Amino acid sequence: MTEKKTKVRVASFSISLDGYGAATDQSLDNPMGIDGKAVHEWVFSTRWWSQIVGQEGGTEGIDNDFLKRGSENLGAWIIGRNMFGPVRGPWPDMNWKGWWGNNPPYHVPVYVLTHYARPPLKMEGGTTFYFITEGIHDALAKAREAANGKDIRIGGGANIIQQYLREGLIDELHIAITPTILGGGERLFDNVDLRKLGYECVRFEASEKVTHVILQHNKKSL
C-alpha cells in the first residue's frame, strides 16, 4: 500500500475582486479590516460552518462542499501572528489567547509565525499554539512532524501565503473570489509570479456567492 503524501495547502482563502485577502485598518473590533468581513460572507451561511461553531442549520451545496474539503485530513496548521490576534510587537503579557475562545476550531497543533517568542499555549479540543521565531521553513518542519502524514494547512494572512508560494512549498491553493471591492488592504498575489513558480489552475467552479479556484503546483515545470 502506497503511503499518502503530506500536502501543504491553502483552503477557503477569500479574496475580493481587486485581489485583497484582508481590508485596511485591522483591529480588535475589525479583525478582517474595515468591511473585510464581506469577503468571507459565503462561509457563514454553510452547514459546515454551523457545525464548526457548534450551531445547527446552514446550507449545503458548492460552497459547503469546498469549505468542508478544506478541513479534511488535516494534521497541523501554520498561521501568521496577525491571524492569531491584534497584538503587535513584543507580547505585553500572556493574556491574549486568540480570537476563538477556549476551544478554537483547529483541533490540531497550530504553528504561529512571529518575531517574538512565547511559550506554547494549550487550549481545549486538541488545539495547541506554538510560536515560531525561526521562519517559514522551521515552522513547516515542525508542522510536518506533528501532522504525522496528514496535510498541513497554511492559514494566512496574505504575507505568509506569499512567502510559502515563492518557495514553491504550497502544493495546492484554493481561493474563493467574491464579488466585493475593498480598494485596499493586503493583496494575495503581490510580487508572486504563479506561472513562473509552476502553479496552474486545475479547477474552477462558481456558486451564487463566490467563484472557487484551485491552483496546484506542477513541480515538473520547474
Rank of each mutant, 00 (worst) to 15 (best):
A141N: 11
W48H: 09
A22I: 03
K150D: 14
L194H: 13
K220Y: 14
F84R: 02
A11S: 10
Q216L: 02
Q163V: 07
K196L: 06
G54W: 15
I34C: 04
G75Y: 01
P179R: 14
I152L: 01
G58C: 06
C201R: 12
S207K: 05
N64P: 03
S221I: 14
E186H: 11
I132K: 01
N159D: 15
W49N: 00
K220V: 12
D190R: 09
G36P: 08
N191R: 15
R144A: 05
G198H: 06
D193A: 04
W100P: 00
H137W: 03
K150T: 05
K220G: 10
K37T: 15
T128A: 08
K97D: 07
A117G: 03
E208I: 12
G85P: 02
W42A: 02
A141E: 13
G198C: 09
T2I: 13
I136G: 00
S207L: 07
G70A: 08
D138K: 12
P104K: 11
E134Q: 10
E72C: 02
D151S: 09
T6L: 11
E72Q: 12
P120T: 06
A143D: 07
R81V: 01
G101C: 10
G126M: 07
E145S: 10
L197N: 07
W48I: 00
N102T: 09
M94E: 15
G185F: 01
D25N: 15
M83E: 11
A117W: 07
Y130R: 03
E200Q: 14
Y130D: 10
Q55L: 11
W49P: 00
D171I: 02
I170R: 03
V43P: 01
G98L: 07
F13W: 01
F131C: 05
K97P: 01
E60D: 14
N159V: 07
R187M: 10
L169S: 00
A22M: 09
K4D: 05
W99Q: 08
L67R: 00
G21W: 03
A117C: 02
Y130Q: 05
G89F: 13
E205A: 04
H137G: 11
T59A: 10
I170E: 01
N218K: 15
Q55R: 12
Q26K: 15
L17Y: 11
H115S: 06
T180C: 12
E60L: 03
G101H: 04
H107A: 14
